[in-house]
Design a protein around this nucleic acid. Structure first.
Lengths: 151, 151
DNA sequence: AAACTTAATAGTAATCATTACTAGAAACTT
DNA sequence: AAGTTTCTAGTAATGATTACTATTAAGTTT
């Protein structure tokens, strides 16, 4: 007969550390970095190691329980909401190619994306100023330009 | 009278190093990394320094002559084609928030993106396998899943 | 339940990409 | 020509992430 054991999470064990990390990521909408997660879980498990945080964020995202957000500026972030949220990159050889830009979004919407790639993921990131930051002291003329939309 | 001088590039000087780097980025569609650019320009200017490459890629992109591609996985890449090519990030406080996902692309297309952000940039990246890598030896059943499109 | 196997951990070292610093050279300005 | 600014090579430092090592904990087998 099976011994009642530590909870499992599919293929991986749910160690106390892993559980804490998962709870931390699931419990916020702030898309925290590994470092922030580390500092937060450290309150409950003072001996936890930063390496453990990284390792678990990796295994949790590999197994589809959380999402890794690779966005390039600044450290990587993690999201408890796992859903796919356009350059095209080969995840095998890491080549990066242009997509025919014209009507890219239209074509995507029409599920007619013409490409020889075997598409695995679509990443969309919009950058801008949040409401609070818009009323900062930075004068309008030295702000970054807003996105221009053609008529 | 003005002395004929080293070419200028708007606000910045076009030093031999900067020219070479610009040519290198403009002359390829491969979206090279700083390191690749460094190795390539080193053939023509053996004493050029990696720091110079980084500094110039920065100034060239700040001034709009090339585009920095911040995509998170692996090192940063650069593109001679400067055109905007959707998470929303505040470029001031670096907060990262979800956009209401539903109909995001539609709304974008309709220029009705409902958000309080002051939008500066839209980054779209599609990830997948390029044609060559599709015919690799990796069996289909251990490949990553393709993107699912709902009916 | 003792012996074995595997997975996970803390702690630390190493790596990679990028930025910062320093002194000197080059170009532009007066 | 002297002063000012921009740029450079070379190197050191930083920040994020990964790798390594010895140990512990959990699961498995007999």
């Amino acid at each position: 007969m099976e011994k009642k054991t530590e909870n499992k999470l599919g293929a991986i064990r749910l160690s106390p550390q892993r559980r804490l990390i998962l709870e931390e990521v699931m419990g916020t909408k702030k898309h925290p970095t590994a470092d922030v997660i580390y500092r937060n879980v450290k309150h409950k498990l003072p001996n936890i190691s930063l390496g453990t945080v990284y390792r678990n964020l990796e295994s949790l995202s590999e197994n589809g329980y959380i999402q890794r957000i690779d966005t390039g500026t600044g450290p990587r972030r993690y999201d408890g909401d796992t859903r796919p949220h356009a350059h095209i990159r080969c995840t095998s050889c890491d080549s990066l190619e242009d997509l025919p830009e014209k009507n890219l979004l239209e074509k995507f919407l029409l599920r007619e994306l013409k490409t020889d790639y075997y598409i695995q993921e679509v990443i969309i990131e919009i950058r801008g100023l949040c409401p609070e930051c818009q009323q900062s002291d930075i004068p309008e003329d030295i702000r970054q330009n807003p996105l221009q939309v053609e008529p």
